[in-house]
Design a protein around this nucleic acid. Structure first.
Length: 565
RNA sequence: CGGGGCGUGGCGCAGCCUGGUAGCGCGCUUGCCUUGGGCGCAAGAGGUCCCCGGUUCAAAUCCGGGCGCCCCGACCA
């Protein structure tokens, strides 16, 4: 393509609304323009790059025997009510009514629609396994769209769904996706880590997340050099040991006037927060329970939900807590309670002589010893923090920020049972399908690639997903000899099917170089006066800024050699 | 949903406090000039000052309401 004839609206200045690098650069480089919060128009460069990403995904999905479908975004609400996710996703689903007053939804993801298709069509175990996928628009009315393409309300997702007869089949389908995803992200040139994750609203048992570490991300992951990696929602860790007093007498009340928070108590008593027990009261389906944590630890509602097997719970009000325990928040504790379920984080197991509330205003207890003074169920209930020890090897964990690029889920029978998607097995018995679901955020690949590959001057995308692999720059279009030489090179490049953008604009060289640096073509081939007179063109690698001079008649073979790697 | 910021030619901003001719830089158009890192000179075009209402002789500016966008948090793939 000729730059003079296409629309690449680069900006000299940073758009005011963009903070994170990928958002800023994708706007500046003319890849996209904003339409509304979380809604973007893709222009020439953005669309080309996204099409390349989708093609890579398509090739790798096809390679594992997945079949490309295309399901509509517009769907009847009934399906979502049937699965129970109409309520679970709540306001995130964009809902509308058609002219006959039928409730419709715009697809958030397509488990329901794919399962609906499967139950209508799949009859026999002989038809299994099936892997169906699509690259399709998703709509999510996010509470807070942000960071350009990182959190969108309308976006492209590659979503696939596997249908198997049994767990062994699911295992195989899941494994194929795991491998295909690695190839996809490798080919897109991304640095990524695979982490164990929490399944969230998707349901199901196991899942892995493919995440790209970058500061602009919003997923927190825990990492260890031994290879352990998990989303913070899911990560386990062992708190470094705390030394407690050896011999501990019975619990003993002491006055703590006005001390309500752990911080205040630390100052008041001079004890470390890791010697305190934090007591939280939760109401779980109208039943009050106690949740205990070490003073310096944070509760994970995700893990609590997993422990309870329910996500209908909330923190009790101060009044409810007083009704149960007889004291205000800040003086609550587990000692002496009868008939109340007590969950304690496992970091409290084996501890002695700690401090907790006494269930009397302005009073705490010392010498509190879990297991002796009260009997909780020990569970993993807290968010891992940096410095916790790896559950596999015992070394300290690191916490890193990353972007979730893809997520693969073992769904099991959650949808097939809810929606009665069954086949006959070899004994003629009707059995629910065992399902998996697997997603990739297409725009997030582009964003993450920019986050991981940019500098002051712009972006340098991996050649596989750059909108153009090569930009051919004629330093001066008014100089007939330079122009003719560049035109000739351009024709040759096209004849060799090289992916080239020819900057034939009547601009000064500086403008062209700045624009070329900005938009992220992997290589720049420049025809400029001085080197041209020596029969040379200049080849500039954007990522390393390394320059090589190549004879004009060797440019094509040189580029083809680079392309072959 | 809580907190904060912002809305003025295409982009980035000033003007608002203290009401009275809408301004600067970039970009755009035309001409000359220049041609290896966002050249120079000159002449131009381009604005419902987010919307609605109020106060006032007079509102970009003051007051009320609304909408939109960004950031932090909550939440969420």
């Amino acid at each position: 393509m000729r730059w003079s004839q296409v629309f690449i609206p680069t900006l000299r200045e940073d758009p005011a609304e963009a903070e994170v690098p990928s958002h800023r650069l994708l706007l500046r480089a003319g890849y996209m323009r904003q339409v509304a919060a979380g809604v973007y128009a893709h222009l020439l460069l953005g669309q080309r790059s996204l099409l390349k990403i989708m093609q890579i995904i398509r090739e790798e999905m096809d390679a594992i025997g997945a079949q490309e479908f295309y399901l509509p975004a517009l769907n009847p609400a009934e399906l979502w009510k049937e699965s129970g996710r109409y309520a679970a996703y709540g306001p995130t689903i964009l809902k509308l009514k058609d002219r006959n007053d039928h409730e419709m939804v715009l697809g958030v993801t397509h488990e329901e629609e794919m399962t609906n298709l499967a139950r209508g069509e799949l009859r026999s175990y002989k038809q299994l396994p099936q892997i169906w996928y699509q690259i399709q628009e998703k709509f999510r009315d996010e509470p807070r769209p942000k960071s350009g393409l990182l959190r969108l309300r309308e976006f492209w997702m590659k979503d696939s769904y596997s249908f198997d007869l049994d767990e062994a089949g699911l295992e195989a389908s899941y494994g194929k996706h795991y491998d295909a995803y690695r190839r996809i992200f490798d080919r897109c040139g991304l640095k990524y880590v695979i982490v164990e994750a929490y399944s969230g609203t998707m349901g199901g048992t196991h899942s892995h997340e493919f995440t790209a570490p970058t500061d602009a991300g919003e997923d927190l992951i825990a990492l260890c050099d031994c290879g352990y990696a998990a989303n913070l929602e899911k990560a386990e860790g062992n708190a470094p040991p705390v030394t407690d007093p050896a011999n501990v007498g019975p619990p003993e009340p002491f006055a703590t006037p006005g001390q309500r928070t752990i911080d205040e108590l630390v100052k008041f008593t001079g004890e470390n927060a890791n010697r305190m027990i934090k007591t939280l009261v939760y109401v779980v389906e109208s039943q009050a329970i106690l949740v205990l944590l070490r003073g310096d630890h944070t509760m994970s509602e995700t893990k609590l939900a997993a422990t309870l097997g329910s996500d209908t719970f909330r923190l009790a009000t101060p009044e409810e807590a007083r009704a149960l325990l007889g004291a205000r928040l800040g003086s609550l504790g587990p000692v002496g309670l009868k008939g109340v379920r007590i969950l304690a984080d496992k970091a409290l197991e084996g501890r002695r002589g700690m401090i907790s509330g006494a269930n009397k205003d302005d009073t705490h207890l010392r010498n509190v010893t879990p297991g002796r003074d009260f009997t909780p169920e020990f569970r993993d209930l807290r968010v891992v923090s940096a410095g916790d020890l790896c559950p596999k090897c015992g070394q300290p964990l690191r916490i890193s920020v990353s972007v979730e690029l893809g997520h693969i889920f073992k769904l099991g029978r959650r949808y097939s049972q809810a929606m009665h998607a069954t086949v006959l097995d070899e004994n003629g018995k009707e059995v629910p399908l065992v399902m998996g679901s697997y997603g990739i955020g297409v725009e997030r690949i582009l964003s993450a690639a920019v986050e991981q590959n940019h500098d002051r001057d712009g972006m340098f995308l991996p050649a596989s997903i750059a909108p153009f692999e090569i930009i051919l720059t004629a330093a001066n279009m008014d100089d007939a000899r330079l122009r003719d030489a560049a035109e000739k090179l351009y024709d040759e490049m096209r004849a060799h099917h090289l992916d080239v953008l020819f900057d034939d604009r009547a601009e000064r060289p500086g403008v062209k170089f700045k624009d070329a640096d900005l938009i992220g073509a992997a290589l720049r081939v420049t025809v400029g006066k001085r080197k041209f007179e020596q029969g040379l063109a200049e080849i500039f690698r954007r990522s390393t800024k390394q320059i090589q001079d190549v004879k004009l008649d060797s440019v094509i073979p040189f580029l083809e050699a680079i392309r072959r790697g």
